[in-house]
């Protein structure tokens, strides 16, 4: 008998109170010539159906690597996951066979990438690429798959979808290409959608339209959305909660409004202060001093201590755990109280 991967997969709809997706103490490292790059050092976050989690952090903080670990698209080797769990409706994805993971990928957890031009295959029509989801995963015929592709292109509001289904990626504008990526990713109604900086490559007006589209699709289908970005401005409108990453760790977890009003980690605070603000026009922009940590040689104690204005002696020696501030909030700072109090309401 042919073993089907679905036997071992989590049931659709989820089990009881388990969150849709939870990442627990995830570690990812890369074996490189220069040494072991510890890109992710104990990331934990959860996502429920219908919820939008924004993952924030400067370049190199491990946002994409975490997402790729969830998708299971890291090249192993050089990547290795020495520790951690990724539970999808209760099942640890890291314990599944490659075959079982292929069943989840694209169908139930889908991903959108930053640069749609390079992320789409240049030699196939967009219709072929969207339709492939139906042909391969559902055994649909070419014609039906193409019909579905047109429907999806309509749904992500690509004008004249019926004619354009035979066009190639390079014949579309940047925003339209990202819409095609989105159409492809939502083709099979995934429960989780990971969008890795989906608007970074686009100009500002188009960015807003794409974010609006994502939010709308998410409302309609009740999927969980992980939105990776380093743009705090984008986040405020769409996210329910935020996970801030620094040096491969989560430094702060919080509902979106709390974090804007009262950050509980010095790094988050620095990030917020570096957003350009209309009311402070003309003043110099605040920038966090110092450089991002060297992943080959992480600072001892709290990875942020060399740049932190709140630093005390124990920050250099002991790694702060994620302290619970309230049931929805946590901060990986020994002095989170001081940081909280130091911000005006």
């Amino acid at each position: 008998m042919k073993k089907t991967a679905t036997d071992v997969l989590p049931a659709e709809g989820g089990l009881g109170n388990d969150p849709l997706l939870s990442v627990e103490d995830l570690h990812v490292e890369f074996a490189t010539r220069a040494g072991l790059v510890k890109a992710v050092n104990g990331v934990s976050y959860t996502l429920s159906a219908g919820e939008t989690l924004a993952v924030l952090g400067e370049s190199g903080s491990g946002k994409s690597v975490t997402a790729q670990a969830i998708m299971g698209i890291l090249d192993m080797p050089p990547a290795r996951i020495p520790k951690g769990a990724i539970r999808f409706q209760g099942t640890d994805l890291l314990k599944l066979s490659e075959e079982a993971r292929t069943q989840i990928r694209g169908r139930r957890i889908a991903m959108i990438f930053q640069d749609a031009l390079s992320a789409l295959n240049p030699v196939f029509t967009v219709g072929w690429q969207i339709g492939e989801m139906f042909r391969v995963h559902q055994g649909m015929s070419k014609r039906d798959a193409e019909k579905k592709a047109v429907e999806l292109m309509d749904r992500v509001r690509i004008p004249a979808a019926k004619q354009r289904v035979h066009d190639f990626p390079h014949q579309f504008s940047g925003g339209m290409r990202q819409r095609i990526m989105i159409a492809m990713s939502i083709a099979l109604d995934p429960e989780v959608l990971i969008a890795d900086e989906p608007t970074t490559a686009l100009d500002v007006t188009v960015q807003a339209q794409i974010m609006e589209l994502l939010a709308e699709l998410q409302r309609e289908s009740n999927m969980g959305l992980i939105l990776i970005t380093h743009d705090l401005g984008v986040v405020a409108d769409v996210a329910d909660k935020i996970a801030v990453m620094y040096g491969g760790r989560i430094v702060e977890n919080a509902p979106v409004h709390d974090i804007y009003r009262r950050p509980a980690h010095p790094y988050t605070k620095g990030l917020l202060e570096s957003i350009p603000r209309v009311d402070l026009k003309g003043q110099d922009l605040y920038a966090i001093k110092g450089l991002p940590p060297n992943l080959l040689d992480m600072p001892t104690g709290c990875a942020f201590h060399p740049r932190c204005p709140y630093r005390q002696d124990n920050c250099v020696t002991s790694v702060p755990e994620l302290y619970e501030i309230d049931p929805n909030r946590s901060s990986a700072c020994h002095y989170w109280r001081e940081v909280l109090d130091g911000t005006d309401e």
């Binding site: 292929t102 990928r105 694209g106 889908a110 390079s118 391969v136």
Partner: peptide, 17 residues
């Protein structure tokens, strides 16, 4: 190594495909 290959993997395509 191209991005679109990573996309194909993320779409749940088999290694063969």
């Amino acid at each position: 190594r191209a991005d679109f290959v990573r996309t194909a993997v993320a779409k749940g395509m088999s290694r063969r495909r």
